[in-house]
């Protein structure tokens, strides 16, 4: 007889694993991935492959040769980072820029902090924001879906910002924009993952069913965005876009569902998640309406990522037996 195993209780496990969660996120992103390839063709495929492969390779190289620790590429977290990074890029981005983005995302965003779970900011967003401020021209020339000649144009948010800046009213600009239904189905310019709202919502449903994330963060972000932009819109409908427009355009859904909910960089308690979600929603709309950039989701998430440790410190869960103050 071989030796008995002894260990403290509990002796059973849910069989949940890092892999299950990470591959769950990848599965949830598949509809949007299919949509992006459908709309942008081979360009999208090229960006996706480059981003995912370079993220995995960079993680492998850093762990193998610099940190000299066992590699963790099989847990799927690097692939998720690569996928989300790709979803934040335009489909005609040169390959070398994508690789730089991957180096920043994995190398600086993740590995310098100690790898999986230790990072302060979402690696994919860090990579994306780095590229956005370093290569603004390439990062903001968005191919128009279905355009065979490879012509580029601004996103609906960009059009809105330009229009408002040049003194036009919202109703004038709206005429030039795709309809809400078109935006839901993905008929608009933008980065890979932003274009098909409906696919992202399918992914959200999947994540909720598999209990990979909870509803708190996405719902509070979108609700805050809707309420805040709604108030502005009621105040002056000609100067501020409608809530629906804000939610359907840009990275609102992608950010709220897939990027803000990143485990390592979001708060740990429901209360904290709601504070975090409200923060992201407010900052996004602030940047979109009053800031220099047409889109503020990435910056909002980064800012709230950094605030997460503080939120964790002050938003404790409701303790059992605690009397409400």
């Amino acid at each position: 007889m071989s030796n008995l195993t002894i260990s403290p209780s509990p002796h059973v496990h849910s069989a949940d694993s890092v892999k299950r969660n990470m591959y769950g996120v990848i599965i949830a992103l598949l509809p949007a991935l299919a949509a992006s390839v459908w709309f942008f063709g081979t360009g999208a495929l090229c960006v996706l492959l480059t981003s995912i492969v370079s993220c995995i390779v960079i993680e492998f190289l850093i762990q193998k040769f610099i940190l000299k620790v066992p590699t963790t590429i099989s847990d799927g977290s690097a692939a998720v980072t690569g996928l989300i990074l790709a979803f934040n890029l335009p489909s005609n981005l040169p390959i070398w820029i994508i690789i730089i983005g991957a180096v920043v995302a994995i190398g600086i965003g993740k590995m310098t902090f100690g790898g999986l779970g230790q990072n302060i900011a979402n690696p994919a967003i860090l990579g994306r924001v780095f590229l956005l401020v370093s290569f603004p021209v390439q990062m903001t020339s968005w191919p128009v879906p279905g355009a065979i000649d490879g012509s580029t144009g601004p996103t609906p948010l960009g059009l809105m910002k330009e229009g408002l800046r040049s003194g036009k009213s919202v109703s004038e600009i709206i005429d030039k924009l795709p309809s809400n239904v078109d935006m839901l189905m993905g008929q608009m310019g933008g980065s890979l993952g932003e274009v098909a709202a409906i696919c992202l919502l399918i992914g959200f449903a999947f994540l909720l069913i598999r209990r990979i994330i909870t509803w708190h963060i996405p719902v509070t972000i979108l609700a805050t965005m809707a309420i805040f932009s709604g108030i502005l819109n009621l105040y002056d409908p000609e100067a501020y876009a409608t809530p629906l427009f804000h939610i359907l355009t840009g990275g609102a859904l992608l950010g709220a569902i897939f990027m803000a909910t990143d485990y390592a960089t979001s708060p740990m308690t429901p209360k904290g998640m709601i504070v975090y979600g409200i923060g992201i929603g407010l900052i996004t709309i602030l940047i979109r309406t009053f800031g220099a950039y047409p889109e503020g989701m990435s910056f909002a998430i980064l800012i709230m990522n950094v605030a997460t440790p503080l939120i964790n410190k002050y938003c404790k869960p409701k303790r059992f037996g605690e009397v409400a103050k």
């Binding site: 195993t5 002796h11 949940d16």
Partner: peptide, 25 residues
């Protein structure tokens, strides 16, 4: 069944926080 799974980094998924019946972290 006897062996525990391999330990990896905490990914801060907060599942333990939602599982705790005493409202701890």
């Amino acid at each position: 069944e006897s062996k525990r799974g391999e330990v990896s980094n905490c990914i801060r998924c907060a599942k333990c926080v939602s599982a705790c019946p005493m409202g701890l972290e």
